[in-house]
C-alpha cells in the first residue's frame, strides 16, 4: 500500500485526481500544500525539489520509500488500486482512453473559458466563443456515451470518472450554467453522482453547480 | 493476444506508438491508412466510423472482437505487453509519467516549431523562438535523466521510450540540427538506440537525423 507526500498548491484539480484515487485505494497520502511544508513558487524552485522533480511542476509525489513521481496522471494511477485502474486489459485501456480524452479534449477549452472568469488570464472574445463550442462538442460526446451508462468504464467508479470529473470541476462550478448544460443531462447526472461519492466528497467537499455563467473578471 | 485494425492517415507519429508497441507484444495489427480501407477525411466522417469513434479522430483501433478504442496512448498501452508497460507498480507509474511528459512538455513546442517547416501552419517568429526555448528545457531534463541510463524506465525499452521517441521523431528529423542538439548528447544517444531497435525499424524504417534545421515551408 503506497504511502507518501503529495506536493501541490491548494485547490489544485490535478492534485485532486491523486487524492481521490488514494481515497479509493487506501493509500496514505500527506498533502503538502502550505507553508512550512510547501510554498508554491519557492519550494518547487529549490535545488532539493528540482533534484527529485526536474520540471519543478506540481503535483509531485514522494513516497515514504523515496520513490519520486511527477505528472498527475502517473501519480493518480500509482495511488489507485486495480479496481479503479480497470481490472481487465480492455477496461484498463478504456480508462486510459478517457484520461487522455480529459487532457486533450477537455482541459484546453475548459481552461480557455474559465481562466478569464477567474481573473488569471486576459479575456479574448473569439477564444472564449471557440472554447464554448469545443466544450459543447466534448459534452455531446460524453452525453451520448453516458446515455446508457452510469459510469464511464464498467459498472463502478474508475480512474476515468475521477480524471474526467476533476477536469470538469472548474467548468461545472464556474461557467456551465443550467441553460448551457441543459442539452447534456447524462453528463450532469454522472458528474453529480461522482462528486457525491464519499471518496470524492472527502477531497472536494461540497461541489455547488454553477447557477449563473461567470464572466470575465478584470 | 490482441488482434485488430488501426485506422490512421499515413506517417502518423501517434499511430507509430501503437504500431511499435504491437511489434514488441506480437499483437496482430492491420494498418488501414489508404483507400479503400480508409480515407482520412472521408471514412472518419462516416456515420459508421463515428458510431465507434465519436470524436472522428485517428488513430482509432478496432479489435477483431469488436473492441473499439481511441486516443493513441490508450491504444499503444492496450497493444503492449506487461514488459513494456512496466512490470512493477513503480515501473508502470514511471512509464505513465514519461507518456504524460511527452504529451504536455514535448508535443506543444515540437508542433509549434515543426508544423511551419512542414507547411502545415503559418510561420510565427515569436511562437517558433518560444518553442525552441521550451524544447531546450525539455531536452535538458531528458539529457540529465539519461546521463546514467540507457532507457527511460528500467533496463529495457518500455512504452516510455516508444512514446517519447515518437514524439521527438519530427523534431529529430526536421529541426534538431547537429549544433542545436550538441548540448544533449545523452538524448541523441538514447534516441538513436531506440530507433535502431528492430521493432522500431520495422515501423519507422531508416530514421535520418536532421543535418540542417528546416525553415518555414510556404
Amino acid at each position: 500500500m503506497a504511502a507518501g507526500t503529495l506536493y501541490t498548491y491548494p485547490e489544485n484539480w490535478r492534485a485532486f485526481k491523486a487524492q481521490i484515487a488514494a481515497q479509493y485505494s487506501g493509500a496514505r497520502l500527506k498533502i503538502a500544500s502550505t507553508s512550512p511544508a510547501f510554498t508554491f513558487g519557492q519550494t518547487n524552485r529549490s535545488p532539493a525539489f528540482l533534484s527529485n522533480f526536474p520540471l519543478g511542476k506540481v503535483p509531485a509525489y514522494q513516497g515514504d520509500d523515496g520513490f519520486c513521481l511527477f505528472e498527475s496522471n502517473a501519480i493518480a494511477h500509482y495511488l489507485s488500486n486495480d479496481a479503479i485502474r480497470g481490472s481487465t486489459p480492455q477496461a484498463a485501456a478504456r480508462v486510459l482512453q478517457w484520461v487522455s480524452f480529459a487532457d486533450s479534449e477537455i482541459i484546453p477549452p475548459a481552461s480557455a473559458w474559465v481562466f478569464p472568469t477567474l481573473g488569471i488570464m486576459q479575456f479574448n472574445k473569439q477564444a472564449t466563443e471557440q472554447a464554448k463550442e469545443e466544450l459543447k462538442r466534448v459534452l455531446a460526446v460524453l452525453n451520448q456515451h453516458l446515455n446508457t451508462r452510469t459510469f464511464l468504464v464498467g459498472e463502478r467508479i474508475s480512474l476515468a470518472d475521477i480524471t474526467v470529473a476533476c477536469s470538469l470541476l472548474w467548468p461545472y462550478k464556474q461557467v456551465l450554467e443550467p441553460s448551457f448544460r441543459q442539452p447534456y443531462p447524462n453528463v450532469t447526472r454522472w458528474f453529480v453522482t461522482c462528486v457525491n461519492q464519499p471518496q470524492f466528497k472527502a477531497v472536494l467537499g461540497e461541489v455547488k453547480l454553477c447557477e449563473k455563467m461567470a464572466q470575465f473578471d478584470a | 493476444m490482441a488482434a485488430g485494425t488501426l485506422y490512421t492517415y499515413p506517417e502518423n507519429w501517434r499511430a507509430f506508438k501503437a504500431q511499435i508497441a504491437a511489434q514488441y507484444s506480437g499483437a496482430r495489427l492491420k494498418i488501414a491508412s489508404t483507400s479503400p480501407a480508409f480515407t482520412f477525411g472521408q471514412t472518419n466522417r462516416s456515420p459508421a466510423f463515428l458510431s465507434n469513434f465519436p470524436l472522428g479522430k485517428v488513430p482509432a483501433y478496432q479489435g477483431d472482437d469488436g473492441f473499439c478504442l481511441f486516443e493513441s496512448n490508450a491504444i499503444a498501452h492496450y497493444l503492449s505487453n506487461d514488459a513494456i508497460r512496466g512490470s512493477t507498480p513503480q515501473a508502470a507509474a514511471r512509464v505513465l509519467q514519461w507518456v504524460s511528459f511527452a504529451d504536455s512538455e514535448i508535443i506543444p513546442p515540437a508542433s509549434a516549431w515543426v508544423f511551419p517547416t512542414l507547411g502545415i501552419m503559418q510561420f510565427n517568429k515569436q511562437a517558433t523562438e518560444q518553442a525552441k526555448e521550451e524544447l531546450k528545457r525539455v531536452l535538458a531534463v531528458l539529457n540529465q535523466h539519461l546521463n546514467t541510463r540507457t532507457f527511460l524506465v528500467g533496463e529495457r525499452i518500455s512504452l516510455a521510450d516508444i512514446t517519447v521517441a515518437c514524439s521527438l521523431l519530427w523534431p529529430y528529423k526536421q529541426v534538431l540540427e547537429p549544433s542545436f542538439r550538441q548540448p544533449y548528447p545523452n538524448v541523441t544517444r538514447w534516441f538513436v538506440t531506440c530507433v535502431n531497435q528492430p521493432q522500431f525499424k520495422a515501423v519507422l524504417g531508416e530514421v535520418k537525423l536532421c543535418e540542417k534545421m528546416a525553415q518555414f515551408d510556404a
Partner: peptide, 30 residues
C-alpha cells in the same frame, strides 16, 4: 490557489494545431 492555477501550463492553442494537422493530412490524402 489562483496563483498556482495561473502558472499552469495549458496548450490553449491545441485546437488550432489539431485543425491545421487535420486539414493538411486530408489534403495529402486528396
Amino acid at each position: 490557489a489562483l496563483q498556482g492555477l495561473a502558472q499552469e501550463k495549458i496548450w490553449f492553442d491545441k485546437s488550432r494545431y489539431d485543425e491545421a494537422e487535420r486539414s493538411f493530412y486530408e489534403g495529402e490524402n486528396g
